[in-house]
Simulated assay, not measured.
Amino acid sequence: MEQSPEQWLAAMQERADEMVRQSQEIQQNLQDMAETAAEADGSVSVTVSANGALKDLHIDKQAFSRGPEHLKTTILRLAGQAQAKVAGRVVETVEPVAGHDGLEFLRSQLPADPDAANDQARRPAGDDFDDEPPQSFLR
Score class of each variant (00 low, 15 high):
29 N>H: 10
27 Q>P: 00
79 A>T: 11
136 S>A: 10
114 P>H: 13
122 R>F: 10
14 E>Q: 05
27 Q>E: 07
132 E>Q: 09
15 R>W: 06
9 L>Y: 02
83 Q>I: 08
28 Q>V: 12
35 E>Y: 00
129 F>V: 06
17 D>P: 11
27 Q>V: 02
47 T>E: 09
109 Q>D: 08
123 R>Y: 00
29 N>G: 11
24 Q>W: 02
66 R>C: 00
119 D>Q: 12
64 F>E: 11
20 V>G: 06
127 D>N: 08
85 K>E: 13
88 G>R: 02
95 E>Y: 00
63 A>G: 06
84 A>V: 00
64 F>S: 11
128 D>S: 06
79 A>L: 04
18 E>V: 06
21 R>Q: 15
85 K>Q: 15
60 D>V: 00
126 G>R: 13
98 A>L: 10
28 Q>H: 08
51 N>A: 11
19 M>E: 13
81 Q>P: 06
139 R>T: 03
111 P>Q: 05
9 L>Q: 05
25 E>A: 10
120 Q>G: 08
122 R>Q: 14
7 Q>H: 05
18 E>F: 03
5 P>E: 11
100 H>V: 08
88 G>P: 00
116 A>V: 15
1 M>V: 10
76 L>I: 05
107 R>T: 03
54 L>K: 13
132 E>F: 07
124 P>M: 12
102 G>Y: 04
58 H>M: 01
42 G>N: 07
94 V>P: 14
10 A>L: 14
91 V>I: 07
